[in-house]
Amino acid sequence: MGCGKTALVAALCRALRDELSVAVVTNDIYTTEDADFLRREAVLPTERIVAVRTGCCPHTAIRDDITANLDAVEDLVDQFDPDVVLVESGGDNLTATFSYGLVDRQIFVVDTAGGDDVPRKGGPGVAGADLLVINKVDLGPLVGADTERMAADAERVRDGKPTALTSVRTQPITEVVDWVRAQVPVAA
């Protein structure tokens, strides 16, 4: 919680919306808060942001039973034929991963302030995600987190897959944007 998923989605929308057709599905276990945040920030037209209710099962909704998210993605595809749909998960722990029945690529976000031993511990999210984002690196010195060690630990468990160090709130996320762009055929 609070690792910056919604802020990353907002930043991606802002960076990509002029060159690609983008839509967003949010999964939020409490309210439609994330969708409301994105709409308030006006990163995309309101109708391109859909909120999904997961019945207190955010992990189930992105992995074991992707029904509600598939419905949302299919509706967005029907309506807008977007180049990319960003699906933001509602829950996060180290074992929360997306089913590839729902997504083509997944980004796992960890928070520098959550402890610099997280990448070393690995787990399906850190090890398996197509892109690992270590966010809030600007807070590293403040919370005593060694971000270089985090990046090195990540490299060890990620078998050559990329890792990006970001401070979404304060710095451009060029590396992440470029990676996403490279995954989308029309943009590449």
Binding site: V52, R53, T54, G55, C57, T60, A61, D64, D65, I66, T67, A68, D71
Partner: peptide, 11 residues
């Protein structure tokens, strides 16, 4: 109940 038909999102 694990049949993936979205039932978990309904009460």
């Amino acid at each position: 109940s694990r049949l993936p038909t979205g039932g978990h999102a309904h009460s």
